[in-house]
Amino acid sequence: MTAAPADLLIDRPAVTDGAALWRLAKDSKTLDLNSSYSYLLWCRDFAATSAVARGADGEPVGFVTGYVRPDRPGTLLVWQVAVDTAHRGYGIAAALLDGLTARLAAERAITDVETTITPGNTASERLFSSFAERHGARLTREVLFPAGLFPDGPHDPEVLYRIGPLTPATAH
């Protein structure tokens, strides 16, 4: 993996980015694709807890969506991470995750990160394991939603990754 391009800009998504985020999720072929409407809403209602990576032309080439858990205000739940196929291998997903958590640690005192990953999604497993290692944080895993809970046909279990605590020195 090489470093993220120098002209990469990481900022908050705008509603006008919703369609691009939907396309990135669709093209990933690994994420559960939500409706295009949900990505528009996400860019409106959860922009403060999400991030988008923009290429030199200003167009989104990657994103991370998340929210602060209502019952755990120090925990960021990362919902989805996607990077355009042509931009993979440059550390963009890691830069997005690091940038978002640094911002939220400063703005909202986030100390923990959670996400769910289906078994066999090695790219996500590597991303979050290396994030925990970079930040000197503990990583635990447990099945959050067994396969049998999903009503819409076969679905792999969702494994909850808990990372934390992050400290101010390691949250950036």
Rank of each mutant, 00 (worst) to 15 (best):
T49G: 07
L127M: 03
G74M: 05
A51D: 12
A6V: 14
V61I: 06
G120Q: 07
G62I: 10
T111V: 04
A82F: 04
A20M: 08
L77E: 01
V81L: 04
R134V: 09
P60Q: 05
A25M: 06
G99T: 00
S50C: 12
F150N: 06
D112G: 09
A3G: 08
T30V: 10
V52S: 14
D84A: 02
T170E: 11
V143F: 08
A3H: 04
S36K: 11
A4E: 03
I10D: 03
A147H: 12
T30K: 06
V159G: 11
D112R: 15
R126H: 09
I117P: 12
L97I: 06
D32V: 15
V113L: 01
A48M: 12
N121M: 07
T65V: 11
Y39F: 15
R108C: 01
H172S: 11
L9I: 09
D17T: 00
E158A: 04
A4W: 01
A47P: 13
L144K: 13
T140P: 02
L144C: 04
Q80M: 10
G164M: 06
G62C: 12
A137P: 15
F150K: 00
G99Y: 04
A53T: 10
L21Q: 01
D84M: 00
A48S: 10
S129H: 13
P168G: 05
I92W: 00
L166K: 00
V113A: 04
V81G: 03
R23V: 15
V64M: 13
P60T: 02
E114R: 02
Y90V: 15
L160D: 15
A105I: 04
R69Q: 09
L96T: 05
I110K: 03
P5Q: 09
P13R: 04
E59F: 08
W42P: 06
R126C: 08
A47H: 14
V83H: 01
T2H: 14
A132E: 05
A51T: 09
Y90T: 08
G66I: 14
L160W: 11
T65R: 04
T118D: 05
R141P: 00
D45H: 07
P13S: 10
A102Q: 10
S35R: 02
P119V: 14
W22R: 12
H135N: 13
R141L: 00
S38T: 07
T167D: 13
Y39W: 11
D112E: 08
T116Q: 03
L40P: 00
R88S: 15
R23F: 10
T85F: 11
R69F: 14
P119T: 08
L41A: 13
G153I: 13
F128G: 09
D98Q: 14
D17A: 01
W79D: 06
G136R: 14
S124Q: 08
V68H: 14
I163F: 03
A53R: 05
G58V: 10
L33P: 02
D7C: 05
V143G: 03
W42H: 14
R69H: 11
F145H: 15
A56Q: 07
R126E: 08
L24P: 13
P146I: 01
V15A: 11
A105R: 03
R54I: 06
A132F: 03
V68Q: 06
P151N: 13
A82K: 02
A6L: 14
R69C: 09
T122M: 05
T116Y: 06
L144H: 13
E114N: 05
G99N: 04
S38Q: 08
